[in-house]
């Protein structure tokens, strides 16, 4: 494992910790998209089915379990927690997730490495992760003055993707025969989706202002 991959994973881990911290400390999930969190849970569950039949390292196993459990925990907070659930604004979080999930499934059934259940679900998870942030970004755009922690959460999530791009470049240069086109193309699209957000996040940070996205 190279430093970019490790830094990417740690940034991903940190983003979730920031999100859980925000929810737990403020007892509010204002500005957090339940739809995105549910999509992430679906991404993790369909991708990490290999927990049941293959083992790569203790590190991988731990991280996979953490991602599944933490997104489950965020969903639980938003849906079930007595105080937090009251702060969820479902009227704003209206993205139609089937418009994301269905095309991803059709694409996974069409473009994959192997037409088996686990491989198609794994490919589906790669495609779905690329677009799963969209409900969250749309919600942020509707929210005037995004709170700092929610902004940081999305920034860290985008940062993790950017570090994965560097990880792939490093692996291409150092590992002969290393290639994974489905992952590269989806990952590049995923990172590109954050560009606009990055621009406004860095601008507001430099001007010392609260983040607000233009509608």
């Amino acid at each position: 494992m190279n430093i970019f991959r490790f830094a990417g994973d740690m940034t991903h881990l940190l983003s979730i910790i920031v999100l859980l911290l925000k929810i737990n400390a403020t007892k509010s999930c204002a500005g957090v998209s339940l739809k995105t969190q549910e999509l992430y849970l679906l991404v993790f569950v369909t991708r990490y089915l290999d927990l049941l039949y293959s083992y790569i390292s203790l590190y991988n196993t731990f991280m996979k379990l953490f991602f599944i459990c933490s997104s489950g925990c965020v969903i639980w907070y938003i849906r079930e927690h007595k105080t937090v659930s009251q702060t969820y604004d479902s009227a704003q979080d209206t993205f139609r997730v089937l418009f994301l999930a269905c095309p991803c499934m059709i694409l996974a059934l069409t473009v994959n490495h192997d037409f088996t259940v686990t491989e198609v679900l794994w490919t589906f998870s790669i495609y779905l992760e690329a677009v799963a942030i969209l409900p969250q970004l749309v919600l942020l755009q509707r929210t005037k003055n995004v709170d700092t922690l929610t902004g940081n959460y999305v920034f860290l999530l985008g940062g993790y993707r950017a570090l994965y791009l560097l990880n792939w470049i490093y692996r291409i240069l150092t590992e002969p025969g290393y290639r994974q086109w489905i992952v590269w193309i989806s990952g590049t699209i995923q990172t590109a989706i954050y560009c606009d957000f990055f621009y406004y996040y860095i601008k507001s940070w430099r001007n010392n202002e609260r983040l607000s996205l233009p509608s």
Binding site: K64, N167, R179
Partner: peptide, 10 residues
């Protein structure tokens, strides 16, 4: 063991 591509990443 990694039996297909990309599966060692998260």
């Amino acid at each position: 063991m990694v039996d297909f591509e990309g599966k060692d990443e998260l």
